[in-house]
Nucleic acid binder design. Structure first.
Length: 622
DNA sequence: ACTGAGACTTGGAAAAATGTTT
DNA sequence: AAACATTTTTCCAAGTCTCAGT
C-alpha cells in the first residue's frame, strides 16, 4: 500500500516540477531580443532589500571553556568569538602553519581586553579543546539530524529550517531591475572569520572582521523603495549610480579591496556582458592572422620593448599546433604588491627563474620549460618547443639577469593591452584565452565527433544509443580546453574508490552479458526445435535478444564513463565551460548531433546560457 | 607615464543537495 | 532509511582591466 502512494507522489512531484519549469520558461526575460541601452547605462530602475547580515555571535554555553596554561579563563565576548574561529579550524592543516598562527594570534590579541592581553602571551599555551569539541559535536548533530530521530518532529524541524531559508531567499535573494525580478548572486554579507588565502599567503590567519551596516554602501534607484538597515543601524551611504551593476558594496579589511553584491549569472546584466565577450573573441578570429604576422615581425624589432611585447604575445596567444595541441594561453600577469599576496605570476610578470631554455630536449629543438605558480597558486608546468626567433630573444632577455629579475623588464600589462586595443577595438590579453579556448572546442568537436561517426559507426546513423559516446567526445573536447587553460584540480579524495566501484560494476555487467547471451542461444535452440509456428517461443527469442542488446548498451555506457572519469582525474572542466567556451558552439553541436542540451548543461548552466540556447542555429560557426 | 581605486570576471574547494545502493 | 556516491551550489579569493587623478 505504501510504495504505491509514494510512486504516485513521485509522479505528482515530477508533474509539478515540469509545470514549474514551463512557467519559468514563460516568464523568462528575453532581454537578448530587446534593444541595448545607451553606452554605460546598466539599468533604469533598481530596487532591492539590501544585503542579508549573518546572525550575531552566540556566546559559548557555560560548560564549554577555554584554558590558558592549564587554567580556565572566561574570555570577553569579542575575544571568545575570535577564539571560536580558530577552534573551528583546528582540524585543518592551516592551523599548524607558522604564518597562519602568528597572524591569527596578533589579530586575536587586538580583540582582547587589556587584562586578557597581558595574560595570554603565547598561542602554544592556549587550549581550545573544549571549544573545538563543541563545534565538532554541532557539525555532527547537523549531519545526523535524520539519523538519530526517525520521528516526524525532526522532519518538521528540517522543513521549518528550509522554509526559513526560503523566506530569506525570497526577501533578500531577488531584486527588481527594469520591471524584471532578477536573482542576486551573493546577497549575504560575508561572515567574519579567519582569512584563508591560497598558497603561501602572507596574510593567512588574519581576522576578517564583521561587517556592519555602517560599512555598507547601497546602490539603487532614487525612486525605489530604499532598503531599510537593520534596527538601530544606518547605511554608510545610499547612492543611485546606474553606470554600475552592483547593489551593495563594502571594503574588506584584509587587502582593503571592495566587495560587491551583484546579480546572478542568469541575469541580463551578466548575460549581456558574457555575450559581448564572445563577440569580441569572434572578432579576434577574423583578424588574428594579421595580428600574428605582426608580432612575428616584431620579434626582429630594433626596440627592445617591442620585441618583449612580441614574445609575450607569442606566449599569450599560441605556440603552434602540431599532432598534439601545443598552446600556451598564459594569463596577462599584472604586477602585484609584494608581501600583500602569495607570490604568483602571469605572462608579463614572469621572472627569469620561471623558465629554462633547452637547445634540444626530447628530439625537439628550442624548448622552453615553464615552471611557475599562476593564479590561485596553481602550478603551471609545461615544456614547449618554440620558433627560433622567440628562443633567441628569450636568451637575450635573460642575459646578465638574476633568477629573481623580471623576464620582460620593458613590458607590463598596460603597455601590452594598449598595443592590443590599437590593433582591434576591445582587444586585451584575456581575449586570446577566450578565443583560443572557444576555437579549440570547435575544432576538437569537429575532429572527435567525425572519428566517432566515420570509424566506429560507419554504417550506424547517430542514434540515441550512441549519446554516451558523443558525450565522451564532447567531454574530451572540453578537456582539451581545460588542459590548455591549465585548469587543474586536486584528485577527488574518493577517486580510487569510485574508480574501483565502477570497474566492478563493469565486471558484473560483463558476466550478465555472458549469461544473457547463453540464454538467447538456448531460447533460439528451443524455438528451432519446436518449429517457427510456436509464437510463444518466438516472442521469447525476441525478448532475449532485447535483453542482450540492453546489456551491451549498458556495458558500453559504463566503459565510456570509466574512460571519461579516468581522463578527468586532475582536470577541472567547470571553469572553461562556464567562462571560456562560447555556449553557442555547444548548443549548435547538440543540435547537430541530436543530443539534448541538458546532457551538456545542468539547470543553472542552461539558465546562464539561455540567450545562447534560444538564439543558436545548427549552422553556428564561432 | 604612473598609481591606486574601482568594477567586474575567473577559480577551485567545500558545503549542500540529490541520486543510488544496501 | 541509512550509507554512500555524485552533482550542484555556495563561497569567497584572486585575477583582469579601466579610469581618474597626479
Amino acid at each position: 500500500k505504501k510504495p504505491k502512494r509514494t510512486k504516485e507522489e513521485i509522479e505528482e512531484a515530477r508533474q509539478l516540477k515540469i509545470k514549474k519549469m514551463e512557467e519559468e520558461e514563460q516568464s523568462r526575460w528575453r532581454w537578448w531580443e530587446e534593444e541595448k541601452y545607451e553606452d554605460g547605462v546598466k539599468w533604469r530602475f533598481l530596487e532591492h532589500s539590501g544585503p542579508y547580515f549573518p546572525p550575531e555571535y552566540q556566546p559559548l554555553p557555560d560548560h564549554v571553556n577555554f584554558y590558558y596554561d592549564g587554567k580556565k579563563v572566561k574570555l570577553s565576548l569579542a575575544a571568545e568569538e575570535v577564539a571560536l574561529f580558530f577552534a573551528q579550524m583546528l582540524d585543518h592543516e592551516y592551523t599548524t602553519k607558522k604564518v597562519f598562527r602568528e597572524n591569527f594570534f596578533q589579530d586575536w590579541r587586538k580583540e582582547m581586553t587589556d587584562e586578557e592581553r597581558s595574560l595570554i602571551q603565547e598561542l602554544d599555551k592556549c587550549d581550545f579543546g573544549e571549544i573545538h569539541a563543541m563545534h565538532k559535536a554541532k557539525v555532527e548533530a547537523r549531519k545526523n539530524m535524520s539519523k538519530e530521530e526517525k520521528l516526524v518532529c525532526n522532519i518538521q524541524f528540517r522543513k521549518v529550517l528550509k522554509e526559513a531559508n526560503q523566506k530569506i531567499l525570497d526577501e533578500y535573494g531577488y531584486c527588481l531591475l527594469d520591471h524584471h525580478r532578477e536573482r542576486i548572486g551573493n546577497f549575504k554579507i560575508e561572515p567574519p572569520g579567519l582569512f584563508r588565502g591560497r598558497g603561501e599567503h602572507p596574510k593567512q590567519g588574519k581576522l576578517k572582521k564583521r561587517i556592519q551596516p555602517e560599512d555598507v554602501i547601497i546602490n539603487c534607484s532614487k525612486e525605489s523603495r530604499i532598503p531599510v538597515p537593520p534596527a538601530g543601524h544606518r547605511w554608510k551611504e545610499v547612492r543611485h549610480d546606474n553606470t554600475v551593476t552592483w547593489l551593495a558594496s563594502w571594503t574588506e579589511n584584509i587587502q582593503g579591496s571592495i566587495k560587491y553584491i551583484m546579480l546572478n549569472a542568469n541575469s541580463k546584466l551578466k548575460g549581456e556582458k558574457d555575450w559581448e565577450k564572445y563577440e569580441v573573441a569572434r572578432k579576434l578570429k577574423s583578424c588574428v592572422d594579421n595580428i600574428r604576422n605582426q608580432y612575428l615581425m616584431d620579434l626582429k624589432s630594433r626596440e627592445m620593448c617591442t620585441r618583449q611585447r612580441a614574445v609575450a604575445l607569442y606566449f599569450i596567444d599560441k605556440v603552434g599546433v602540431t599532432v598534439v595541441i601545443l598552446k600556451l594561453a598564459l594569463r596577462a600577469g599584472n604586477e602585484k604588491e609584494e608581501g600583500e599576496t602569495a607570490d604568483t605570476v602571469g605572462c608579463c610578470s614572469l621572472r627569469v627563474e620561471h623558465i629554462t631554455l633547452h637547445d634540444t630536449l626530447d628530439a625537439s629543438e628550442c624548448v622552453v620549460e615553464f615552471d611557475f605558480l599562476g593564479k590561485d597558486s596553481i602550478r603551471y608546468y609545461n615544456k614547449v618547443p618554440v620558433i627560433k626567433k622567440v628562443f633567441k630573444n628569450l636568451k637575450l632577455f635573460m642575459e646578465d639577469k638574476q633568477p629573481g629579475d623580471e623576464l620582460f623588464d620593458r613590458l607590463n600589462t598596460s603597455l601590452l593591452n594598449k598595443h592590443l586595443s590599437s590593433l582591434m577595438p576591445g582587444l586585451t590579453a584575456k581575449v586570446f584565452r577566450t578565443y583560443n579556448a572557444s576555437i579549440t572546442l570547435q575544432q576538437q568537436l569537429k575532429e572527435l565527433t567525425n572519428v566517432i561517426i566515420l570509424f566506429f559507426f560507419p554504417c550506424r546513423l547517430p542514434e540515441s544509443d550512441s549519446v554516451a559516446e558523443k558525450l565522451l567526445s564532447y567531454n574530451r573536447a572540453n578537456r582539451a580546453v581545460a588542459i590548455l587553460c591549465n585548469h587543474q584540480r586536486a584528485p577527488p579524495k574518493t577517486f580510487d574508490q569510485s574508480m574501483a566501484n565502477l570497474q566492478s560494476k563493469i565486471e558484473a555487467r560483463k558476466e550478465q552479458l555472458v549469461l544473457a547471451k547463453s540464454e538467447l542461444k538456448q531460447a533460439k535452440k528451443e524455438a528451432k526445435a519446436k518449429g517457427s509456428a510456436d509464437a510463444k517461443l518466438q516472442a521469447l527469442v525476441v525478448r532475449k535478444k532485447m535483453a542482450v542488446k540492453r546489456c551491451e548498451e549498458q556495458l558500453l555506457k559504463l566503459e565510456v564513463q570509466a574512460t571519461d572519469r579516468e581522463e578527468n582525474k586532475q582536470i577541472a572542466l567547470g571553469t572553461s565551460k562556464l567562462n571560456y567556451l562560447d555556449p553557442r558552439i555547444s548548443v549548435a553541436w547538440c543540435k547537430k548531433m541530436e543530443v539534448p542540451v541538458d546532457k551538456i548543461y545542468n539547470k543553472s548552466q542552461r539558465d546562464k546560457f539561455a540567450w545562447a540556447i534560444d538564439m543558436t542555429e545548427v549552422g553556428f560557426e564561432f
